[in-house]
């Protein structure tokens, strides 16, 4: 199944540098329609107002964390099926389990490489 690379992608991270890195890596993968948010609350507002095909979110942000954003997304009737990838330095088993139970589509641990990002995006979008 072909992936629609014109879809809107929302990337969420409180480190501006990380947003820039992910945006550039997505551009290399030919995803050009990328929007940014710096915490879960801002992301949720953008998701509710817009039309996105993928969310890539950090975990550790104030005031709303990535896990809490994921739960809000899964509880929203319009957004509940939205592919959601967590990219985070939180690598404990309990974090991965909590994210999976909340409905995460895939989980990438920082520091990550471009190949991992590409592989996970393809995996979640093909199964979306």
């Amino acid at each position: 199944m072909a992936i629609d690379k014109n879809m809107n992608v929302l990337i969420v991270d409180d480190y501006k540098t990380m947003l820039r890195i992910i945006r550039n890596l997505l551009k290399q993968l030919e995803f050009d329609n990328v929007e940014e948010a710096t915490d879960g609350a801002e992301a949720l507002a953008k998701l509710r107002a817009g039309n996105f095909g993928l969310v890539i979110s950090d975990w550790n942000m104030e005031p709303m964390t990535g896990l809490d954003l994921l739960k809000e997304v899964r509880a929203d009737s319009r957004l509940k099926s939205l592919p959601f990838i967590m990219i985070t330095a939180e690598s404990k088993t309990e974090n991965v389990v909590a994210a999976k139970q909340a409905g995460v589509s895939n989980y990438i641990v920082k520091p990550f490489n471009a190949e991992t990002l590409k592989e996970k995006i393809e995996k979640v979008l093909v199964h979306a």
């Binding site: 739960k71 939180e90 690598s91 404990k92 309990e94 909590a98």
Partner: peptide
């Protein structure tokens, strides 16, 4: 106040 905050420990 949330599970997300409780599990936010930063990098190992």
């Amino acid at each position: 106040e949330t599970e997300g905050r409780a599990l936010a420990n930063g990098p190992q």
